[in-house]
Computed example of a mutant assay.
Amino acid sequence: MERYDLSAANVTGVLPDGARKEQGISLAIGFFDGVHLGHQEVVRQAVALARQQGLVPAVMTFDPHPRVVLGQGSQFQTVLTPLSDKLTLLSELGIEAAYIIHFDREFSEVTAEQFVKSFITPLGVKATTVGFDFSFGHRGEGNAEALKLYGNGEIQVQVVSPVFLEGTKVSSTRIRERLDDGQCSEASGLLGRPYVIKGVVVHGDARGRLLGFPTANLEPEQPFVIPRSGVYAIHIDVLKDSGAVESRHNGVLNVGYRPTFDAPGGALKLEAHLFDFNDDLYGRQLALTFHSFLRAENKFASIDKLIEQISSDSAQAKEIFSVKLQD
């Protein structure tokens, strides 16, 4: 189990064994994929409890997703938030320390009682905050009541009710479904922020430049959930080596298989066209923020038809951003 100090926006160092243990810890526990509105409420309550009782606000999470290790769903091989982004978001919510447990087959055999006595109590945890559907231990045998029991009544357990947005329960599964449908605004509402994919610009076949619409071909740096195939209005942040934003641009993104040019069965591609930008981006890291779904991916009868459609897509995206700016 690794311990990270999150006093800065990024992971900055290792929290030494026993550091601040005497002060006690208020611990939020969960996988927190997406750090969505429901997760944020769990974390906020853990932080509030820490402030009330003079404890260190901390989180315990797992990597990779337990269901991947247990073979319970291939969809969990992709993530809404990679671990590094998750830690940054948790830090912004007031978390000061994170305990990351590497989840493997051996750990999956740990009983609920062993988990509390070997992984919770030794940290000096005085209070825990968990979601309404929290379970832990071998085959998910433990719940909030078990956490109290095995903590010998010395660990306060706070259970957070589900969060609803416009009648919909906020969950990572629901967000994935919205992205699968291309419904970016709905997914963003459930997340509490726009959906972002980060990656590095790699060489393509330069066909976009030949068409008059140069594109940056993005290779995601982590196994992000990729929204449905189609064309999107997006914001593109060009990042510095430090991860800070160097510049922001509007543009359009094609997610798909380029049926006009490529044979069926090819690799999925993410090709971003930045408006009014012509600098070399090869090897640079970009962050793509999904704004609006424009249309499904199509196969065009001619190159001229494709160029005409890309022009229309760009005009539509510029209009969307113009309206948003006026709002």
Rank of each mutant, 00 (worst) to 15 (best):
T81G: 00
S314L: 12
E92S: 13
L179M: 10
V225G: 01
S312I: 13
E271I: 10
T88Y: 02
G124F: 11
E221P: 00
H65G: 05
R176A: 03
F261L: 10
V42I: 15
V130H: 03
R209M: 02
H39V: 08
Q309R: 15
R176D: 06
N278P: 00
D304S: 15
L27Q: 09
Y99G: 00
K269L: 15
L268M: 13
Q75A: 12
A146N: 11
V255M: 14
E297R: 02
V130G: 03
A263C: 02
A315Q: 13
F119A: 11
D279P: 01
G266C: 03
L325N: 11
P220S: 03
T260Y: 03
S108T: 07
K240D: 13
H249L: 12
G153K: 04
F275G: 06
S247R: 08
T215I: 11
V116T: 07
G30C: 09
I29W: 06
G24H: 11
F293N: 04
G54P: 04
K269C: 09
G212T: 09
A112Y: 02
I320F: 15
S312G: 15
H235D: 14
A233M: 11
D180P: 01
V196R: 06
I234D: 13
G54H: 01
D33L: 05
V170F: 01
G131K: 03
R67Y: 09
Q23R: 15
D262G: 01
G94S: 08
Y195S: 05
L211F: 07
I155D: 12
F164C: 09
S26V: 09
T215F: 02
L325K: 14
F321N: 08
V59F: 08
I29M: 02
R20D: 15
Q45N: 11
T128F: 04
R295G: 09
A46D: 13
E141R: 07
G137D: 09
H36P: 03
E96V: 08
P259K: 06
R139L: 11
E145G: 11
L123Y: 07
M60W: 09
F76W: 15
D33K: 00
A206F: 05
I197Y: 01
S292N: 15
E319M: 10
P259I: 10
E96W: 03
I100D: 01
Q72I: 04
Q158F: 05
Q158T: 14
P64T: 07
V11C: 05
L149F: 12
S84L: 10
A58P: 05
R67T: 12
K117G: 01
S171T: 09
S84N: 13
T128N: 06
D180H: 12
G256A: 04
Y282R: 03
S7F: 12
E219C: 08
H102Q: 13
L37A: 08
N254C: 10
R67P: 06
L268S: 03
R178T: 07
Q72N: 06
G212Q: 08
R178I: 02
E166M: 12
Y99H: 09
S185F: 10
L288Q: 04
L55F: 09
K198A: 10
E297T: 05
L288T: 09
A144W: 11
Q183Y: 13
D205V: 03
